[in-house]
């Protein structure tokens, strides 16, 4: 295996510790809790004339899943933007010119260390809801697009740091041997350093995707019609009965869990693979 040459052993113990805890059966426990909550909710609804909580949830299911589709869409687009911008920002950060690296460092740390909700509010109020685009006339920027952009900013900053860290983790000898073979700095980055960084950066990159996907419901605060916002709207429309709360929110939890947990497992597997390969 060519993995043999990659040395990532710093997190070895942390990773092993973690992965021994993560297992598919945890999803089962959650599903059990979910269905258990219906029994509980059913017992609480004393009269048969009103539809049960599970019946209500079932009626509103397409509406909530449609919202979840928007969560996924926002997470994909935001991650794509964050990756492109983050790699660019990371490359600026490792520039040898202080005039380039310092601003890049500042932007990186500004967005890394701000609450996502604050970034979300700021983007919502600072970015106009429509824009004059040459050739296209006035283009409306729906709230979900603005929210997507807002979510991409903190992830961009973290990807910038991932890139910087990965580049710094490549042994100095790689730079030296490239230099002695007459590679320029840009050629060394392009052909020797960055290709080696990709493997190291994939697990943390996936981690940030998971965090990003889990953060998308924040957009509901601003009226974006994603899964959580739609679920709340559905509960409201169905009479806002308190026994809805547990099954509805547990359903949302299961929905996100079912999506994110495989990603988390896969990330751990990759991390471990790189450790074992060493």
């Amino acid at each position: 295996m060519n993995d043999g040459a990659f040395r990532i052993d710093r997190h070895r113990f942390a990773v092993e510790h973690f992965s021994s805890r993560l297992h598919w059966r945890h999803g089962l426990w959650l599903a059990l809790a979910f269905f258990g909550s219906f029994v509980l909710a059913h017992a609480q609804s004393d009269t048969q004339r009103i539809p049960s909580a599970i019946g209500t949830l079932f009626i509103w299911l397409p509406f909530i899943l449609k919202g979840f589709g928007l969560n996924l869409l926002m997470s994909f687009i935001a991650m794509a933007c964050a990756t492109v911008l983050g790699v660019g920002l990371g490359l600026l950060q490792i520039s040898h010119s202080r005039w380039v690296s310092l601003p890049a460092w500042f932007i990186t740390h500004l967005f890394r260390n701000s609450p996502w909700l604050v970034i979300l509010f700021m983007v919502m109020f600072l970015v106009p809801f429509e824009m004059q685009v040459p050739g296209l006339g006035i283009v409306r920027l729906p709230d979900w697009v603005k929210a997507t952009f807002a979510f991409s900013l903190p992830v961009m900053a973290n990807i910038s740091e991932i890139l910087r860290g990965a580049v710094n983790s490549i042994p100095k000898g790689q730079w030296e041997s490239a230099e002695s073979l007459a590679f320029t700095r840009a050629q060394t980055l392009r052909w020797i350093i960055l290709p080696q960084c990709i493997r190291r950066a994939i697990p943390p990159w996936m981690n940030w995707y998971a965090l990003l996907a889990l953060a998308t419901p924040m957009a509901s605060v601003l009226g974006v019609r994603e899964a959580v916002g739609n679920a709340q709207a559905a509960m409201e429309a169905a009479g806002a009965r308190p026994e809805f709360l547990l099954p509805f929110y547990l359903f949302l939890l299961c929905l996100f869990f079912a999506y994110i947990y495989p990603i988390a497992l896969w990330t751990r597997k990759l991390e471990r693979k790189y450790v074992v390969a060493n």
Partner: peptide
Amino acid sequence: IVFQQYNLFPHKTALDNVMMAPVLV
């Protein structure tokens, strides 16, 4: 120059390691 720690490019095969500089540089 040849170094104590070889410093081969681990993501490339032996042949690619030898070919890289003449082709790319």
